Simulated assay, not measured.
Amino acid sequence: MSTNNTHLRMFDLNDRVALVTGAGQGMGLGVVRALAGQGARVAVNDLYAERAEHAVAKLVAEGFDVMAVPGDITRSEIREEIVFKVRQRYGDIDILVNNAGVPPGMPESLRHFSELEDKDFEIQLDLNLRAVLGLTRLVVRGMGERGFGRIVIISSESWRVGLSFGLTNYAAAKSASLGFMRHLAHEVGRKGITANAVSLGTMNNFGYDEQAKSTAVGRAGTPEDVGALVTYLASSEAAWMTGQVLPLNGGAITA
């Protein structure tokens, strides 16, 4: 038996191009670092240019091949510009990670359903549904032509479990994107494209320490936790995983 391990490296993303939205900090930045660590060339989107550029400068110093593509992805012309810039530098996008999902002012702006106005729903739908639909539409046809594509949506366990502190509009938009993902998976599965979602529990970015203690592992989730799962979903090894919502919640919900 050969002892040559050259071809045994799993989750190898060399020659893959990824776009991660909302990735200037937190969970998105963890996803970028994980994908780039496996060899992908990664475009870092963030609403705030300085945040995207700071993240990219740090990652480049660490030896990763990344670029900044800041901009408001709720605007169709900005989405088109972002995809154009990525293609211009890296080529066609193989991996789309729809991570952006928290509008400016959240969670401080959370209010109960009876207090919400139409604009509060539009803000969430623009970011958590329409931006996902728009970016996916820009890249999915090319993925099918090349026979490989990975669409990943970063969602929240708020779609699964009702809570009382004002997440109705957020959870509704997240739930809608999951319905889209499941149907997309069936439409594109025979073209080498998968579509999945990662449903996050309590993470370490909003300081919910007491809530995090209720998890089976006794801590909140980290950017590294998210990056590891997304890297698997982005890989060739995940070719038979599609149309799924994968809970990443530290065992807080086990059903």
Rank of each mutant, 00 (worst) to 15 (best):
86 V>R: 03
81 E>H: 13
82 I>W: 04
18 A>N: 07
186 H>A: 08
156 S>M: 08
32 V>P: 08
160 R>F: 12
65 D>L: 09
198 V>G: 07
244 Q>Y: 04
124 Q>F: 07
202 T>H: 03
218 G>N: 08
125 L>D: 01
162 G>C: 06
22 G>F: 11
163 L>M: 14
52 A>W: 05
253 I>Q: 09
72 D>R: 05
230 V>K: 11
175 S>R: 11
77 E>S: 14
199 S>V: 13
141 R>A: 13
56 V>C: 10
100 A>H: 13
137 R>T: 07
161 V>W: 02
37 G>L: 04
186 H>S: 12
149 G>S: 10
32 V>S: 00
247 P>A: 13
17 V>Q: 03
57 A>H: 12
5 N>G: 00
193 I>F: 02
144 G>S: 03
33 R>Q: 14
50 E>L: 01
240 W>A: 09
11 F>V: 10
159 W>E: 15
86 V>S: 08
215 T>A: 10
7 H>L: 14
114 S>G: 08
39 G>W: 00
37 G>I: 06
136 T>H: 03
233 L>Y: 00
247 P>V: 07
178 L>W: 08
21 T>C: 04
243 G>Y: 05
244 Q>G: 03
221 G>K: 01
150 R>E: 07
222 T>D: 12
73 I>G: 08
98 N>M: 02
89 R>E: 15
213 K>L: 05
73 I>A: 03
121 F>A: 12
205 N>D: 12
82 I>P: 06
51 R>Y: 02
90 Y>N: 08
